[in-house]
Design a protein around this nucleic acid. Structure first.
Lengths: 166, 166
DNA sequence: GTCCTTTAATTGTTCGAGCAATTAACGCGC
DNA sequence: GCGCGTTAATTGCTCGAACAATTAAAGGAC
């Protein structure tokens, strides 16, 4: 019991605990952290770092594409994608080639070698989903999804308002 | 239209899009990213980096304590706390002192100077919470909280099982 | 008292991530 | 044709975060 300022006499009105502000935000933080931790532990078994699998998924699903498009869809900024792609290239999972039409863009594509990963990543994400959903019935699952979608909408709107407002 | 392998002839059954695996996990990723982004934008105005505010909150609420306790409660590992505390110390927000009872531990406490931050952080987290909750009524808010709590329980259980199992 | 295990903190290394600034190719207005 | 704003990609920097390994103090077993 580190201190007991709140229990004692009159030095100050017991200001609300800071931790009690923003329960939703705290909950999001905690869920996100442990979810990412688990994803990382599972992914490291196949040699990927958390975040990289999103990039690979996109490449597997949509085929070769520009880095900017990758950045937009996985919602990361350009420098992050640049470095992530470089690492994946070193690991042999993607290939980069300059676009013939536009001298600025480089096209990224999944290598044949990466197709072996694909199955593993699918398995891992299924496992992760199972861990997350666990006891939830289908109805609950849908409802949680809906709730998360709502949060995402709210946050996106707020972020957009910030960008536009100032 | 990046590729059209799936539409064409008989080379392979159109395997499910990898992105469609794990909708819950994807939703968590997206909400977490944008939430953290917003928190970062708000916090940078007072000179904190996302994550540091959790540490400060704990110090404000619970008073001086050991780094290990900090790590446990904000659910980060020891090295992260070590470096985070060092940065906060450089910034003048915390003070560190060796424990007289135990030569291994260092006690961390918030400096008087950091109390100015406290109000700002409370304001920022309230703002963040408002952005997150936005249109949600009190009932919905409670329900979302409950849902997130459930996810956290599931994930914690899974993580614990992993730790114990292998 | 000495050894051995546990625990607290640290450093090293790597990665994702964000902001700032830079470079280079594009393309439009004129 | 030329300049100028736009866009794609990159590099520099700093942080949080994880894992591995190391150091040092503490505390039991004997």
């Amino acid at each position: 019991m580190p201190n007991d300022a709140d229990t004692a006499a009159g030095e100050e009105p017991p200001r609300a605990r800071v931790s009690d502000v923003g329960p939703l935000s705290h909950a999001i933080f905690r869920v996100a952290r442990i979810h990412k931790l688990l994803a990382g532990q599972l992914l490291r078994e196949v040699g990927l770092h958390p975040g990289q699998e999103l990039l690979m998924m996109r490449l597997w699903d949509e085929g070769p594409q520009r880095q900017t498009d990758l950045a937009a869809v996985i919602d990361a900024d350009a420098p992050t994608v640049t470095r992530s792609v470089r690492r994946l290239e070193r690991a042999g999972f993607v290939r980069r080639s300059p676009s013939p039409q536009d001298g600025r863009v480089t096209i990224v594509e999944a290598t044949p070698a990466s197709m072996g990963l694909r199955g593993a990543v699918v398995r891992i994400w299924a496992e992760l989903e199972q861990m997350t959903a666990a006891d939830l019935g289908e109805g609950d699952r849908q409802e949680v999804l809906r709730a998360l979608g709502g949060l995402e909408r709210n946050l996106s709107a707020a972020e957009e308002a910030r960008a536009g407002g100032s």
